[in-house]
Design a protein around this nucleic acid. Sequence first.
DNA 1: GGGCAACCACTTTTT
DNA 2: GTGGTTGCCC
Length: 754
Amino acid sequence: MDYLASLNEPQYEGVVNTEGPAMIIAGAGSGKTRVLTYRIAYLIKEKGVDPFSILALTFTNKAAKEMRERIATVVGSNARNLWMGTFHSVFARILRAEADRLGYPSNFTIYDADDSKSLIKTIVKEFGLDDKVYKPNVVFSRISSAKNRLVSWQEYVNNPIYAADDETAQKPEMGRIYKTYAQRCFKANAMDFDDLLFQTNVLFRDHVDILNKYQHRFKYVLVDEFQDTNVSQYLITKKLSAVSQNIAVVGDDAQSIYAFRGANIENILNFEKDFPDLKVIKLEQNYRSTQNIVNAANSVIARNKGQIKKKVWTTNNDGNRIDLIKSISDNEEGRFVASAIFEQKSQNNYKNEDFAILYRTNSQSRAIEESLRKSGIHYKIYGGLSFYQRKEIKDLMAYLRFAMNTADEQSFRRIINLPKRGIGPTSVEKIVVAAFEHDIPLWEVLNNVNAFLPGRAANAVNDFVTLIKSFQIYVQSKDAYETASHIAKNSGLLKELYDDKTVEGLNRYENVQELLNAIKEFVETPEVEDKSLGAFLQDVALLTDQDNEDPDNKDFVSLMTIHSSKGLEFKNVFIVGLEEDLFPSQMMMSSRDDLEEERRLFYVAITRAKENLYFSYALSRYRYGRLINCEPSRFIEEVDPSFIFVNTRYGSREPKLGRNDGPPGFNANFARNLMANKKSAPKKPLQYHKPSADFRPSDTSGLQEGMKVEHPKFGFGKVSKMDTSGANKKAKVIFEDFGEKTLLLTFAKLRIVE
DNA sequence: GGGCAACCACTTTTT
DNA sequence: GTGGTTGCCC
């Protein structure tokens, strides 16, 4: 019982109250993971519960892995038998086992968000709709949110409320798209991420015997990050624990930052209603941060109306005040952050790993990255494009998936003309449409393609079919690694990449090799019983590469979005880009709820810090390659000023050329196309105007037609036309040396001469 | 069908 | 700033 001795009173309550429903509201830094892991350890060790009958659900693979390891240190190897994993992986496993009840094969493919969006794109195109109205992202999130609220396409099409909604949104075809999308997924033997939860609900709703089976199997259900569950996830856990009533949820409403993905804070209220004899435990003591940081965070979150009453407190030292850094530009901001890290390291013996730089959007990383590189500070950027989203990886994966599941339309579209086989979009469309019109499997169309396509295209398709059939023999008889490397070689993918001698080409080649290594590793793992390609694909679909860590070099500064920083902590945290419209994000300002979610995001960012916290903002910044003026974020003012130390550190802005700056034929965009097309460079060198004044972002509100202006690069010119009709005011200027250019006045690089 | 140049659109995203 | 896409031409 010694592991329990270290717990405080409410933590102990959270661990030992294992029977009946419990809700643990855990403030930031209050030892939430510890309570969850000890609770499971307590069940196994002290209560003698079989690990097989404990189901613990998390949101990330990383959290599941970490928790499993921590439990193992208390209970030993027995922890392996726990049902612990992400919602998606656990229910994918159950769905594979019970797939036949839903009319799916057990080797169904899992579509990731990219697959889903490209399927939506093709459907929108097939319907002859405007993809500017039916943007794949918008359609996808509409379908996704319907599924997460358990609205099937049948209900969606039949319910006039949705039709009216879509009518006002000028998207009347949404129901038809949802229907087609769902049917296409089903026909492709594929489930998207939302289906894994949606179909589990269907399974439990329509097949009571199966529900009973799992209700009796899982005697204890635990849910981590409960504030981020959506309706679909909540209903699954509720149903599973309806018999045993042993359900424990752990979360913090103040850290709910995924409402935009369907997370529903009302689950907390519903939970209280659904389980009336619920035990509520509040963890309010923060062990992570200094007084100043805890109090600043409290002063921010207190502005939100909707929240559960709790008071997070700490007995830690006061610590330093928050350092507020003001700078002139995003580059300058990067430099100050780099120099602050440098100073702190030498003065206070911090290591790189003690620092994190948090921002609202991934695109902000570039300016920071540059200055860290110049200062020789080792850093790592989290997020961005993941390994499995890279084109070359998706290409090979598509071959592997198609060899496993010849109904998979998305994989088919990806590989049918890759490498080039002379099968164009028209032929592909004919094949797919034929499969639908005659209601036969895609594979059958491909095997009888001569009936649908003219000779030359049909021959190419026949070759493709023969190739796939040769792969299928491997799939059946060899392990995943042998199959995958055979397919990589014989599909021609590797050769195409090998022939590409550019830097990117080499990278892509290495990435494919890395994927093959990963498969090899999978095959050579002794615990893995099923070493087939199918087993690997099932494993990998739900894996993101967050856990691919480089063990050699762990001492780096972490750069990431605030979203991905959740659950982590650092001694020193920089929150950069604290500017109005950026954070809080302009696109989030439509309603008060959205502002509250942005504020919770700010709260999450602040509470990552253990010792020192820095706020930083710039007065001007490049966004989408254009210079804009910025104002400090309202969030800075929302922090009680007694916790802030203002540290004004202006600098200067250096002129920077955008890709489209300069005359056509001589600008960077032209150079880029030259590089891409391997043509020789023009003989004439670039000659830009030498600015006669210091060009800071300036006010151009008085600009009128006919005025003479100076531009830092194009030199002198005359305003020929003003366009104030759109959201972005524009001016057409005829430059003496470079001719006519249209300039966006928001970015105000013009100086009025006369 | 393929190559090239211009054009467009961009939030966060554990799965 | 970047990547993806469209539209024109061969």
